[in-house]
Simulated scan of single mutants.
Amino acid sequence: MFQLGPETDNDWWEVEALFDLCFAPGREALSSYRLREGVAPLRALSAVARDRDGGVAGAIRFWPVRVGGAPTLLLGPVAVHPTHQGEGLGGLLIRDSLARAEAEGWERVLLIGDLPYYRRFGFARMEGVEFPPPTNPDRVLGQALHPGAWEGVAGPVTSFAEMATEGQQAPAGRG
């Protein structure tokens, strides 16, 4: 049994420790982290799962990005503590947060991951989405939260921080 709740400021260091455990401290060198610099995770969608003892068992974060100028959610990281892997917690975090993203009015989600795992949640390989190098294009996956949300959306993935420096601001929680 897990208790899901929104990530709070008090959860930050526990969640960071979980991500370091699952992905190694060098994770911040990945190109996806360049898209996150200067932009806060979306608190309405980022969640923490605690086990019955109150420990952080899993966490998921979302960040706003743009694909060819279109507001898009970047899912990740999502992690489950090794002692809870295989219990369905990753799937619970993903399904719950995608339902909340859709309810919040977001239209599309992007992630970098393994298609065999993420296919079960409705993700597919994205053609025409240019994630910053050195990302393997086969790992660029997306999902439309509304029918046709990816139609006509292509081009470079850019940070909302970059857009803000060009005089454009991130939407207030909606895409």
Rank of each mutant, 00 (worst) to 15 (best):
residue 98 L to D: 02
residue 90 G to N: 12
residue 44 A to Q: 10
residue 91 G to Q: 07
residue 7 E to I: 10
residue 112 I to N: 00
residue 38 G to T: 08
residue 48 V to Y: 08
residue 123 F to L: 13
residue 55 G to P: 00
residue 103 A to I: 11
residue 128 G to I: 12
residue 157 V to A: 05
residue 75 L to K: 06
residue 97 S to W: 08
residue 70 A to S: 14
residue 167 G to V: 09
residue 31 S to V: 11
residue 156 P to K: 03
residue 143 Q to E: 12
residue 155 G to R: 07
residue 168 Q to C: 07
residue 24 A to S: 15
residue 58 G to M: 09
residue 105 G to L: 04
residue 138 D to Q: 13
residue 162 E to L: 10
residue 15 V to M: 06
residue 95 R to T: 15
residue 4 L to E: 13
residue 19 F to N: 14
residue 122 G to S: 07
residue 35 L to T: 09
residue 80 V to W: 01
residue 167 G to N: 09
residue 31 S to G: 13
residue 32 S to Q: 13
residue 159 S to T: 08
residue 131 F to W: 13
residue 7 E to M: 12
residue 94 I to A: 03
residue 76 G to D: 05
residue 99 A to M: 04
residue 133 P to Y: 02
residue 95 R to H: 15
residue 104 E to F: 00
residue 94 I to D: 01
residue 104 E to H: 01
residue 86 G to L: 11
residue 99 A to I: 04
residue 22 C to T: 00
residue 123 F to Y: 14
residue 126 M to T: 03
residue 82 P to T: 09
residue 9 D to N: 14
residue 158 T to Y: 03
residue 77 P to G: 02
residue 76 G to L: 01
residue 120 R to S: 10
residue 33 Y to H: 15
residue 101 A to G: 12
residue 96 D to F: 01
residue 175 G to D: 03
residue 113 G to A: 04
residue 63 W to K: 00
residue 98 L to G: 04
residue 48 V to S: 10
residue 169 Q to Y: 02
residue 154 A to N: 00
residue 93 L to H: 14
residue 119 R to S: 07
residue 16 E to W: 03
residue 62 F to E: 05
residue 55 G to E: 13
residue 21 L to I: 08
residue 31 S to F: 10
residue 36 R to W: 05
residue 97 S to L: 09
residue 133 P to G: 07
residue 20 D to M: 00
residue 25 P to E: 11
residue 150 W to C: 01
residue 24 A to R: 15
residue 73 L to K: 05
residue 137 P to E: 12
residue 175 G to M: 01
residue 118 Y to N: 08
residue 50 R to A: 03
residue 102 E to K: 15
residue 67 V to M: 05
residue 28 E to D: 10
residue 110 L to V: 12
residue 151 E to S: 12
residue 119 R to H: 07
residue 111 L to H: 03
residue 60 I to K: 03
residue 122 G to H: 05
residue 164 A to D: 07
residue 60 I to S: 06
residue 105 G to R: 13
residue 76 G to M: 04
residue 12 W to T: 09
residue 174 R to P: 00
residue 86 G to P: 10
residue 125 R to K: 15
residue 27 R to D: 00
residue 88 G to D: 15
residue 66 R to K: 10
residue 118 Y to V: 11
residue 110 L to F: 06
residue 47 A to W: 15
residue 33 Y to K: 08
residue 167 G to F: 09
residue 119 R to E: 11
residue 22 C to S: 01
residue 124 A to Q: 07
residue 152 G to R: 05
residue 156 P to I: 06
residue 163 M to L: 14
residue 40 A to Y: 06
residue 117 Y to L: 07
residue 136 N to A: 08
residue 33 Y to I: 02
residue 100 R to C: 10
residue 111 L to F: 02
residue 142 G to I: 07
residue 117 Y to V: 06
residue 162 E to G: 09
residue 33 Y to L: 05
residue 99 A to K: 09
residue 99 A to D: 12
residue 50 R to P: 02
residue 25 P to F: 00
residue 14 E to R: 15
residue 2 F to P: 00
residue 112 I to V: 15
residue 141 L to N: 07
residue 126 M to P: 00
residue 40 A to C: 07
residue 42 L to V: 08
residue 32 S to L: 12
residue 95 R to C: 14
residue 32 S to A: 15
residue 61 R to T: 13
residue 122 G to D: 09
residue 45 L to E: 02
residue 83 T to E: 13
residue 85 Q to V: 14
residue 139 R to C: 02
residue 152 G to F: 10
residue 41 P to T: 10
residue 70 A to H: 08
residue 77 P to H: 03
residue 91 G to F: 12
residue 43 R to H: 13
residue 57 A to F: 05
residue 86 G to R: 11
residue 168 Q to W: 11
residue 160 F to H: 05
residue 136 N to R: 13
